[in-house]
Design a protein around this nucleic acid. Structure first.
Lengths: 155, 155
DNA sequence: TATTGTTATACTCTATAACTATA
DNA sequence: TATAGTTATAGAGTATAACAATA
């Protein structure tokens, strides 16, 4: 799923560039996480919970994981003091999860380290190119840009 | 590590866009792989071996994995008939790995499915935007553009 | 009955340590 | 001695199935 970056052959497809970029970014996240004994998934959970709490089922759905997998993930993070559980007062079946101060501290440290790790790559771009890339990725991700210049709707 | 895609607040950073893009692409690869009982790592190994063979140690280094992990990965793929091992005639210690016809068939099918899965997103871009995005990502990934305008070397 | 979570089980992924074989 | 791989072991991530509690 990875194109050899060395061969300057014909022209690379957008798909290849996206896959290579993704493996690159994930590689950095994996390494950074490993330095703090966090898997990519734990990192992601912590990232999601850095500014909100969430119920087990919503987290699992958001991550595309089974609820039983979610239980295990939260178990281990809770054992380490990074996350905590709360019974939801509205619905006795629901369990809410949130980051502890230690968890928040860790995720913010990780975010800073991530920016630092990415710097060599992002600094290869001019500020204009960075903006352009950000906008193109948002478009790609379906996030409608601030100024909606939507053309006529289909049909 | 993930920004809420819904909030159209200030402006998203390049780092956030890259992380979101990476999780998106990895999510597609994970799902596609799972439909054929392939993990992200197996997928990647198969992708690397789709046009060359490689020794165990080189593969492990390229993937950033321990050699013992590599042994397990190749064991399981070999048991499924997707990869095969060969003793290297030059150096008796070395084991070369390559994809079987079945493995090649599978990875090519997966690559086609991947393109199809990505289509909804890539088609949100015009051909010009796709080219632009590809070039920006290559720049980001340090792949020097065709015309090397390298400035003076440090020192 | 349906939904939310947890637990038991099994398999893959991963690294560390100890080992074998070759150089 | 050093290098290439494998094996044993252990922990994390994952899903399926069975279960308990609540709605």
């Amino acid at each position: 799923m990875q194109q050899d970056p060395a061969k300057d052959g014909p022209k690379e497809t957008l798909e290849d560039a996206l896959v290579r970029t993704s493996y690159h970014v994930m590689g950095i996240l994996t390494r950074l996480g490993a330095e703090h004994d966090l898997s990519l998934t734990q990192l992601r959970v912590l990232g999601i919970l850095r500014d909100r709490r969430g119920r087990m089922s919503d987290l699992a759905a958001h991550l595309g994981l089974d609820k039983s997998t979610m239980s295990g993930l939260v178990d281990r993070a809770e054992r380490r003091g990074l996350l905590a559980r709360d019974k939801n007062p509205q619905d006795g079946r629901v369990v809410d999860v949130f980051a502890t101060p230690a968890g928040l501290e860790l995720i913010h440290r990780l975010l800073m380290e991530f920016r630092r790790e990415m710097a060599p790559a992002t600094e290869r771009l001019t500020p204009e190119q960075r903006d352009q890339l950000t906008r193109l990725l948002e478009l790609f991700l379906e996030k409608p840009p601030a100024a909606p210049v939507r053309p006529a709707r289909p049909r």
